[in-house]
């Protein structure tokens, strides 16, 4: 299992950030996520694998300075 914004979600092998977001509603706004405290931005979503037991937060729309 992984935790996404405090909700439990089934983990699957070869899960990437991009594949996870495809399963979530209203995630098109999401350009940055935090996985176990570390930031990952959208250019890295397709290549970044998610490990089992990860704690993930979807950051809101990046608002700049």
């Amino acid at each position: 299992m992984i935790e996404v914004d405090e909700k439990q979600i089934e983990w699957s092998e070869n899960m990437t950030i991009a594949s996870l977001l495809e399963t979530l509603d209203n995630s098109e706004f999401c350009s940055v996520v935090r996985i176990n405290g570390k930031l990952f931005s959208s250019p890295l979503f397709a290549e970044t694998m998610i490990s089992d037991n990860s704690k993930i937060q979807l950051l809101p729309l990046v608002a700049g300075g």
């Binding site: 940055v32 930031l39 931005s41 250019p43 937060q57 950051l59 700049g64």
Partner: peptide, 22 residues
């Protein structure tokens, strides 16, 4: 604490985000 953690890191979270987005 769940989003940008500005109370901890200020606006320095933008450095890796801007870097990754070119």
């Amino acid at each position: 604490p769940k989003q940008n953690r500005m109370a901890v890191v200020g606006t320095t979270h933008l450095v890796p985000i801007m870097n990754d987005h070119d």
